Simulated scan of single mutants.
Amino acid sequence: MKTIVLNQPGELHLTSRDVDEVLSDNEALVRIHRIGICGTDYHAYRGKQPFFSYPRVLGHELGAEVVALGKSVDTKQLDIGNKVAVEPYLNCGHCQACQNGKSNCCENLKVMGVHTDGGMCEYVKIPANKLHHSAQLGYEQLALVETLGIGAHAVQRAQVSANDIVLVIGAGPIGLSVIQFAKIQNAQVAVMDFSTQRLEFAKQAMHTDYSITATTEFNTNDLRKALGGKLPTVVFDATGNSQSMMKAFSYLAFGGKLVYVGLFQGDVTFFDPDFHRKEVTLFASRNSLPSDFKNIIQQMESGQINTQAWLTHQAAFEELPSVFETWLNPESHVIKAMVVV
C-alpha cells in the first residue's frame, strides 16, 4: 500500500508497505479516504513536536471506510462498508484515568501519528471501538471530527454557558474549533490573533462577536475597552505560545476560568497574589472523549456545524510530499488542508 513517512524533520517520503490484514477479535481494518493536516503534523515536520520520534507515519484526522472486521465486533454497531471517523487516542483501558472515564489522558496513551504510526497510508488497523460511524456524512466531514473534538472538549471542561463572555486567543484550527462550540452554547465570543485574515475568517464563518488584532503592547485595559467595559469570564489560549499563555492570566475577569488548549515545552509562571485575588480556575484540556466524537457527528448531521468553510486547501496523496511545505507559509492562508487518498 502507498504510505508517506516523515523520515526526519523536513523530509516526507512516499513509499510502499505491505498491508497487515491479520485482525485480532476486536480490531477493524479501514481504508483511508481523507486525511486532515493539523498543527501536530506541521510541528513534527519542523522538528518541534513534543513526545515525538522519527521516522513516523503521520495522520490522525481521518475519514475512513470499514473493509474488514475481527470476529468479535458487533456488526449491529459497525459493519463493512460503514463510513467512519477515527478516534486516534489509543488508551490502555486499565490505568486510573481510564478507569475514571478519562481515556483522553490515559497514563499510557499513544496517539496515532504521534506516538505510533498514523493514517497517512491506504489501510490501517485499529480497535473497532475507536471508529464512529455516520450514515450521512462524507469522508471530508468525518476527517474533521477529531479537530472539532479538541474544541468541544475544551468548552465542556469550562462549562461555557450563554452567560459567559469568551475570549479565544489564536484563530488557527484549534481556536476555531473552540469558537464553534462556544457559539453553540450561545456565549459572546471574542477572538484575538495577529492575522487579520484569520480574524475575518472567524467573523464570517463562525460569527464571532468581537475581533481583536493582537499586538505586543495590547493589555488588559485595551481588552476591557474592546469588550465594552467588561473582561472575559472564560479565556481559551490555543496558541501554544509561552508568552501568550502566561499573559492570558491578566485578561480574566474576577472569578474567571483560563483553559490551556495549546501547549509548549516549558514552565508556566504567574503572579500568585493576583491568581488568588481573582480566584482563577485554571484548566488543561487534552484531546477529547468518545462521547465528544458521537456528539459532534450528531451536530454535524443535524446541521448545527457547517464544515464547508473549514476546507481551504486540498492535495492528492501522491502530491503531499511536494506541497506540504507550502502550507507552512502564512501567505498560503491555510485554515484546514485535506489530503485525498
Rank of each mutant, 00 (worst) to 15 (best):
I37C: 11
K48Y: 01
G63K: 09
L29W: 03
I35V: 15
R46C: 13
E61W: 05
E27H: 06
C38M: 08
V57Q: 04
Y54S: 11
L58H: 05
I32C: 10
G47L: 05
E65C: 09
R31S: 14
C38P: 00
S53I: 04
A64Y: 01
E65G: 09
A44D: 02
R56G: 07
R46E: 11
H43C: 08
G59W: 02
F51K: 15
P50L: 08
E27P: 13
R34A: 12
L62G: 09
R46I: 00
V66K: 01
H33P: 00
V66L: 10
L62S: 05
Q49H: 13
V57G: 05
R56L: 08
R31T: 08
Y45H: 10
H60K: 10
G63W: 02
L62C: 07
L58N: 07
Y42T: 15
L58V: 00
V66C: 10
R56S: 07
K48I: 02
I32V: 15
H60G: 15
V57N: 03
K48M: 12
R46M: 13
L58G: 14
F51C: 11
V66A: 12
E27I: 03
C38F: 04
Y54F: 14
Y42K: 15
R31M: 10
L58C: 11
H43M: 10
Y54H: 11
N26R: 03
R56T: 01
A64E: 09
V57H: 03
Q49S: 11
R56F: 01
E61H: 09
G36A: 10
E27G: 12
I37D: 13
S53N: 12
L58P: 01
Q49F: 07
H43I: 02
I32P: 14
S53K: 10
V66I: 08
L29R: 11
Q49W: 03
R31Q: 15
H60Q: 13
G47W: 00
G47M: 03
T40K: 04
V57D: 05
Y45Q: 09
E27Q: 13
E61D: 11
G36Q: 03
H43Q: 14
T40Y: 02
A44P: 01
Q49L: 15
F52I: 00
E65F: 03
I37G: 12
P50Q: 07
D41M: 10
I37V: 15
P55G: 14
